[in-house]
């Protein structure tokens, strides 16, 4: 285990931001801490880094208790949400800063910085200033800077939060690929469940300072441990008093087995269609259909249909 957190607690004044968190993170894994804003996930990351001091509990990295160790002795790589570039230094100077602190020789620094810029594809921008880079480039520079010191753990705080939608998607797959090549234990914090599902091989879901569930992302999606996790990972609708994923419901003709319902609204999003229904028990629910399914059914408002849970459903409580 690369990182062990034991009963970690942190309060700001009377507010418990991180409440008795105990978990472990596998060596070489890419773990994502997912939670809504204010869930304490960034604070937890900063506690692991040593940027905040914890009130009680212990933090161990690679079997060594680091609870009372200063940030700068922990040898961790930290990428800040807004990248925290050193504005008055060039890209190369930024990346080499940690090595200079470690009193490496000029030649060693230059060589290592060259390698890293190669990896993050910024070799041609070595002498630019952060202000001359795009958001994605700044992000990659921050990553190179954090990696330069060969950290035991790489910590990423909302790494793609400030980027355009398209760049985010690009960087996500780049990060996966990158982690594959350099398998340093990585913890990333995000509030974006799609991002978390795509990137993580371990998922930690947090709310109100406490861990809600940990494990494999697909497993968590399929069997969330509570309603919060279920609702946070994807849309849910209420069918027969039970929360269900709207894509796990099926619409069929009025005579098919299932609950009778009337179509009350149809919204076409292009890649999917949302159909709102009113059931015979006078409850409402909605169903997510693929465009093709919707075309086959050719529904219109007022149609009588039946709705049922798809066979082999991932029904969850």
């Amino acid at each position: 285990m690369a990182i062990l957190l034991n009963r970690v607690t942190k309060s700001y004044g009377s507010r418990r931001v991180v409440d008795d968190v105990t978990t472990s993170i596998d060596d070489g894994s890419l773990t994502v801490i997912l939670g809504p804003s204010g869930s304490g996930k960034s604070t937890l990351l900063r506690l692991i880094a040593g940027l905040e001091t914890l009130d009680s509990g212990t933090v161990a990295i690679d079997g060594q208790d680091v609870t009372f160790q200063d940030v700068r002795d922990r040898n961790i790589g930290f990428c800040f949400q807004h990248y925290a570039p050193f504005r008055h230094m060039t890209v190369a100077k930024n990346v080499g800063f940690g090595l200079k602190v470690r009193k490496q020789s000029r030649a060693d620094i230059d060589r290592r910085v060259g390698e890293l810029l190669e990896i993050v594809r910024l070799s041609d921008k070595a002498n630019r200033y952060p202000s001359q880079l795009s958001g994605g480039e700044r992000q990659r520079m921050a990553l190179a800077r954090a990696l330069a010191i060969e950290p035991r753990v790489l910590l990423l705080d909302e790494p793609f939060g400030a980027l355009d939608a398209q760049v985010r998607v690009e960087l996500r797959s780049w990060l996966r690929d990158f982690h594959h090549r350099i398998p340093v234990t990585t913890i990333m914090v995000t509030h974006d469940q799609q991002e978390a599902m795509e990137v993580a091989d371990q998922l930690i879901i947090m709310a109100e300072g406490a861990i809600q569930q940990t494990g494999d992302p697909r497993h968590i999606y399929a069997s969330p441990s509570n309603e919060f996790v279920q609702g946070f990972l994807g849309p849910i609708t209420n069918f027969g008093g039970v929360p269900v994923r709207p894509h796990d419901l099926e619409i069929r003709g009025a005579n098919a087995p299932g609950e009778h319902a009337v179509v009350t609204a149809i919204q076409n999003f292009g890649f999917e269609v949302r159909v709102d229904l009113r059931t015979e028990h006078d409850t409402s629910c909605w169903v997510q259909l693929s465009t093709r399914e919707a075309e086959t059914l050719s529904l219109s408002v007022g149609d009588a249909v039946t709705v049922s849970v798809r066979h082999e459903p991932a029904l969850m409580i």
Binding site: M1, L4, T58, D65, G215
Partner: peptide
């Protein structure tokens, strides 16, 4: 990967030197 909580029992709160 399952997280074995029993792992944590190996950590005891250490008073820092």
């Amino acid at each position: 990967m399952a997280l074995a909580l029993s792992d944590h029992s190996s950590i005891v709160t250490i008073t820092p030197p």
